[in-house]
Design a protein around this nucleic acid. Structure first.
Lengths: 354, 354
DNA sequence: GAAAATTTCGTGTACGTACACAAAAATAAT
DNA sequence: ATTATTTTTGTGTACGTACACGAAATTTTC
């Protein structure tokens, strides 16, 4: 019971021979161009299916002079957080991979603290002729404007990192915020003994980004609502993100409450870690987000117990590839691609790939 | 300060034009074939460098009739465990990706319980002309024979899933067993209250595979040796892998000892889970290995607390790509590629990708 | 039923590189 | 200096697909 040795895969020529037509006709069927008799088309299609014809991408690319241009619009790396370095790296990697296939990627960066820069870049993108857009719809109102224009211009667009519901986006690639909060709660639940208390910490300047954090908090709280044992959840919002402000607020809180586990809803967990280390509160368990050098340092020292990460680099990569697969390859693209929710600890961070 | 708009990248034709030679000569220089006057070669090389010529991989591949054949030798999926389905899927995926680039992959399967099938397949591989081999060196003695023959035949080979030290393999792709045991211990340490006891369970028929499990156990034990608080570690080996045998052995053990956490060193953790569920020992925490349907079912029901996974599918994919990158692309390949050590729980398994 | 219009199909060239073969130039042998 | 030999260089075809153009077959029009 051996499969026949597969010879060189069949191409248009072989199809043409079997269907008794010329390769021109086969080509018309393959690229469903007009000008083929229905009967002939059917016959050719049958043989194509029968042979399980796979076009040779090399030859296809070589013969076609067509090129594509994709625009990417994401936040620049602020001095405050290096998070967006990772998606950008993934975007660059994808760009390199698809360059030979005629797709070019141009990156535009906006300032997270300045909506104006978002709009300016968006307009710049619209002026040029791009075949697809990948962007982070952080500012809802401004994003909706861009979306609308893309719709009328028939330019497909992909969201990265956050989603806006009810839009005709090609795909959303990003974290599953609610679920990641849920997971955090699950871990906290293991860390927690009976009667112990939890503190939820939101550290964020921008009101807009709050939405992001709230979804995680929601998932976190939902877990404990369904929990068997009752757990007291305290919470604080810290709007001044510098260390001194965080320290002041936290020391007051820890003095007045009996906190055993702290959950920080974003990557600024290292600020809290620094505080705990300096104040010597070594018995407090700490859990937060993102594989950043500052965080890893505290993970290594066991000040942070768990980091939850959602492969930011892969997000960038997948974002670009979604456009490429859809436009260039003509493949179907998943409506939403939620990233895996990784748990990073002192014992596995060395093997982690962002 | 704008870079000049990049026109279509220069090819052999442009080089030939500038050097005042034919494309044939340029071709000879590029592939450093013989038969070019030293002076001419120099002139051409200079222009190549000047233009920063990048060969068009598509065209190169299309024109070159050269093909590669890779052999893969891994265990077949036994009725006992579906583990190897995952690496095989990754191998198949990689094969599809590189097919157009002239690389073909042929898969050979051996029976984990029959060394003879390994040797027979290995010989079959050696008889044919393969350009590279990817295999799981499970049986040391038999593997060494294959390795030796590959060495004399100058065929590069890659190990998957387990490593044999001191060999001139092109690369090793697989789990970091020791470290994954370490991670398991780290998690167990969170689950454990003072004075509580742990049970390590090895369930395995084959003596040979034991080596695998022992490395994990070693990492596990090492963690607790360095631990602040003393933890009592019990251990049992179960050689009969059917449910009844496991049940008998475990019930006796749990009756006589006071076990709070069980660590199963391989994917058979679902057998233990089934036992705990049936016996109603719901307070015992359970941790084991691998993203298999049987295990996920118990993870969902919270009978299993954690599963540790090492991306078996990606292992297969990377194994094939290592051969491809090295032989076809001429790229350097990492000596060892340890997989990430993923923690899968009830709250994140839906997002997990093997 | 012939000419015109339209549909359907086949042929040729191009993409950038590899490689075989032939032509030309340079060198060696007589 | 002429022929033979070797080295160096140029030309042509092929890879599998895309696409323009023109030929053939079919349908429409009068």
């Amino acid at each position: 019971m051996k499969k026949t040795v597969e010879s060189a895969p069949a191409g248009v020529k072989e199809i043409a021979r079997r269907a008794n037509v010329s390769i021109g006709t086969v080509d018309r069927v393959l690229n469903n161009r007009t000008g083929v008799a229905a009967k002939t088309r059917e016959r050719v299609l049958e043989i194509i299916k029968e042979l399980d014809y796979q076009p040779n991408l090399m030859a296809r690319r070589l013969a076609s002079r067509r090129t594509w241009k994709f625009a990417v619009l994401i936040p620049s790396t602020s001095s405050e957080t290096g998070y967006w370095n990772a998606p950008l790296a993934g975007i660059r990697q994808a760009a390199a991979e698809i360059r030979d296939f005629g797709a070019q990627v141009e990156v535009f960066l906006f300032d997270q603290n300045d909506k104006q820069t978002f709009t300016a870049n968006a307009n710049s993108i619209l002026k040029q002729q791009f075949d697809g857009v990948l962007f982070a719809p952080m500012f809802e109102e401004e994003s909706l404007k861009l979306i609308k224009k893309c719709n009328t211009k028939q330019i497909p667009y992909v969201f990265i990192n956050s989603d806006i519901e009810g839009q005709e986006r090609l795909s959303y690639i990003g974290p599953d915020l609610y679920q990641s909060g849920h997971l955090a709660a699950h871990l906290v639940n293991y860390l927690l003994q009976d009667q112990q208390e939890v503190l939820i910490v939101n550290i964020s300047k921008e009101m807009d980004l709050h939405h992001h954090l709230l979804k995680k908090e929601e998932g976190f709280r939902a877990y404990f609502r369904n929990n068997k044992r009752p757990v007291k959840l305290n919470k604080t919002d810290i709007r001044q993100t510098d260390y001194h402000s965080v320290k002041t607020k936290l020391s007051k809180l820890l003095r007045e409450n009996n906190i055993d586990v702290i959950f920080v809803t974003n990557s600024r967990v290292h600020t809290v870690a620094r505080f705990l280390e300096e104040s010597g509160d070594v018995n407090i368990r700490l859990i937060g987000y993102d594989f950043l050098a500052e965080n890893i340092a505290f993970l290594e020292k066991s000040v942070i117990d768990f980091l939850i990460c959602q492969k930011p680099q892969e997000q960038g990569h997948k974002g670009v590839m979604a456009l490429y697969n859809y436009l260039v390859q003509g493949l179907p693209v998943e409506d939403a691609q939620h990233m895996p929710i990784d748990i990073v600890t002192r014992e596995n961070y060395r093997n982690y790939r962002n």
